[in-house]
Design a protein around this nucleic acid. Structure first.
Lengths: 206, 206
DNA sequence: GTCTATAGGTGGATAGAC
DNA sequence: GTCTATCCACCTATAGAC
């Protein structure tokens, strides 16, 4: 997430700036004027590419979701251990937080009541997709004897997603990535198959 | 939290309305005009009681913190079991969520970057106070053999606070209190000294 | 595709009468 | 303490020239 290159083309650059502003200030916390100022174009020009802010918001979430899904695919493709997948998943969130951002969808979820209906639906889709991916990883981990779930995979996945979103929210208030790290570590540790290792998940196979 | 009576007096009523609006729409999601409309007074009248919105925000958080601290005091005074204290703490959050609100400070934390500095500090104070209360309860629970922490009490307290904030955030996107309940239940279960799930036997190292 | 110019609305905030 | 009236900055959005 943090390593993604800058987009080329005007629409892509508009989305890049909007995304950063939305993740730091919220969807209602930035304006077309803010984007225009950063890109040295006029507000009218922005309206040519994204007719209304509601449209911009929907495209923003759709692209975010798409990119995120791609990253999860990369994790799946290059990682075998479920515990390691989870660590890399946490790493994605961490990469967002170190840039003083929140997850786009976590941030926008806070503004839920003020959003156009289509955006609300897109956010749920993002959450649901994340929960499904996490649930699959958790099930794999349990099958492999690497993880021990104390509930259904979906329940644990939902707790995991919620807890990470909350950990980012609170940690950012303190400007402390360390706070996030500690909470994330405890979360993963609670899923480890061997309760005696309080330091983290089972060491990865080398 | 959910059972608190309406305040008397104009300043109190202004704060009541502002609090609800801030918890549902965010601090940047409501205006003096919104408050004025609900209370049938003019914007000018609001400015008499709270000169600027920044002042209103600070008083809002201060009052919220005060009331919340009072509720924690009530829990301490009327509950002996640490596990039961935690359940009642979770109940406070639940009571907020069923009214389609988020914790005032969780909500405002999302808007962190757009807030006046004094408000940012007040939010951290609220979080820190919650963490301290939780840590004390957790320590009591471990002493009593009721809870088993897999980390320092402060670390676990921080995870607990973050996870509950996140659980509210996500659950509200789905308008589903059940989602919150499940996550909260799993969280508390992970702290129980003896897991009494249907799986029965304490997990052992393989 | 990008610009200038502007419409029409709402934001927080103030002056001064009552 | 509450009102009317107003200021000015900013918001989203559009019309029309280039």
């Amino acid at each position: 997430m943090s390593a993604r290159l800058e987009s080329r083309g005007t629409p892509g650059r508009i989305l890049d700036v909007s995304e950063r502003l939305a993740q730091t200030r919220g969807f209602n916390g930035f304006s077309y004027a803010d984007i225009a100022g950063e890109l040295d174009v006029t507000k009218a020009s922005l309206h040519y590419h994204f007719a209304t802010k509601a449209v911009l918001g929907r495209v923003l979430i759709a692209r975010y979701h798409e990119v995120f899904a791609g990253l999860l695919g990369q994790i799946d493709a290059s990682t075998t251990s479920a515990a390691e997948k989870l660590r890399r998943y946490v790493g994605l969130y961490r990469g967002v937080l170190v840039n003083d951002r929140l997850c786009l969808c976590g941030m926008i979820a806070a503004e839920h009541a003020t959003l156009p209906k289509p955006m609300q639906g897109e956010i749920r889709r993002f959450f649901t997709a994340n929960e499904a991916w996490l649930a699959a990883v958790l099930e794999q981990g349990e099958r492999d004897g690497e993880l021990h779930l104390r509930g259904t995979s979906l329940e644990v996945a939902r707790l995991l997603l919620s807890a990470l979103q909350g950990a980012m929210l609170v940690a950012r208030s303190y400007r402390s990535v360390a706070r996030f790290d500690v909470s994330a570590k405890r979360l993963l540790a609670s899923l480890a198959a061997e309760p005696r290792t309080s330091r983290g998940i089972k060491p990865r196979a080398r």
